[in-house]
């Protein structure tokens, strides 16, 4: 905690001293004038009354209390005016990364999605400051949440997706196209295309999620799919990969357990073109691998400038000042001034 204008309390003290000096000087001058004085005899008939002493003491307490509270309020406000702050050095290199989680929710992936979203959650825990989005796709893509760095929100959303995809297939809620709480199912809007699991379309849609194409940022897609194409995509996986390459997006793959053969080889070949890699969801440390790749590999390409973050803390002195001023008003009312 430090003060930006540390001289402010001193200035307030100087102001108080000046005011007191001026008042005393004015009073002295007023004392010299005879015009403002009314001489009265036998004032002891009032001043010697015991009630007078009581009233005098009461007035003194009220006045003293008011002066004290005004000084407290002034002191507290001078602290507010001095701007108490804390400073922090923020790393900007991390916030330069955008990550789109790209989840295949086609029927063939149903059994694997819960584990994959679990992986996503592990990944998210490792990131600090990166912007993260989630897109689900089947024959068309739908965005669950856009790029943002509100990790509480991201984790809450991912947890709710995990909860939903873990439900048994054939749930009553699923049959009627929604879960019991009334929200639309997570895959709502992912069946508008021609076929199922149109991987090229899904990847291309995820590439389109990145905003600010002009900014120099690290862009990563984590694509979870079994590459089991069934239908007629608008773009093929190869075309989508080329599009990602063109947009300087690195794509990592997560594949469900038990997947091997030409689909996985094809996926690995394509994603390696972008500098990415494919991991199995069951690989121990698959998430850590992705995180390391994302952070280590791309940190070198970014030039983060440490930024000084200044946070104001006017809270407690301001509260004291408000309370003191209320006290002054209360005493003024009591004293009928």
């Amino acid at each position: 905690m430090e003060l930006v204008f540390a001289w402010m309390p001193l200035a307030a003290a100087g102001l108080v001293v000046t005011v007191v000096v001026v008042l005393v000087a004015l009073r002295k001058r007023a004392d010299r004038g005879e015009r403002g004085i009314l001489s009265a005899a036998h004032t002891e008939r009032l001043l010697a009354l015991p009630e007078y002493r009581g009233a005098y003491r009461r007035a003194l307490v009220k006045l003293g209390g008011m002066v004290l509270l005004v000084l407290v309020a002034l002191g507290a406000l001078s602290v507010v005016a001095a701007r108490p702050i804390t400073t922090d050095i923020a790393d900007t290199d991390r916030v330069n990364r955008d990550i789109v989680l790209c989840l295949d929710v086609s029927g063939s992936m149903t059994a694997a999605d819960a584990a994959i979203v679990g992986r996503f959650l592990e990944l998210v825990e490792q990131f600090h400051g990166e912007r993260i989005a989630l897109v689900v796709w089947d024959s068309s893509a739908a965005q669950v949440f856009p790029l943002n760095d509100d990790y509480d929100y991201v984790e809450e959303k991912l947890a709710s997706v995990q909860d939903e995809v873990s439900s048994d297939v054939g749930d009553v809620g699923d049959l009627f196209g929604g879960d019991p709480d009334g929200d639309p199912p997570i895959w709502a809007g992912t069946d508008l295309g021609n076929g199922s699991s149109l991987i090229g379309d899904g990847l291309a849609s995820c590439v389109l999620r990145f905003d600010n194409p002009d900014l120099e940022r690290s862009r990563t897609i984590i694509l979870a799919t079994d590459n089991a194409l069934a239908g007629d995509p608008i773009v093929t996986l190869e075309e989508a990969t080329s599009f990602a390459l063109e947009r300087e997006v690195r794509v990592y793959g997560i594949t469900p357990s038990g997947m091997f053969g030409p689909d996985e080889d094809d996926l690995r070949d394509q994603l390696r073109r972008t500098g990415g890699e494919v991991f199995g969801v069951d690989d121990t440390g698959a998430g850590q691998n992705i995180v390391d790749e994302v952070l280590d590999d791309q940190a070198t390409t970014l030039e983060g400038v440490p930024e000084l973050v200044v946070i104001d803390h006017p809270g407690w002195p301001f509260r004291i000042a408000v309370l003191a001023l209320w006290g002054v008003l209360f005493l003024a009312w009591r004293a009928r001034i």
Binding site: T43, L46, Y52
Partner: peptide
Amino acid sequence: REILDVLDGSPVPSVLREDPRLARVYRRR
């Protein structure tokens, strides 16, 4: 005008003159 005692110059504070209890007692006395 500020009321001062004619002999010793001790002031009669105007704030206290507005004290109703004191005024009542003074009037009775």
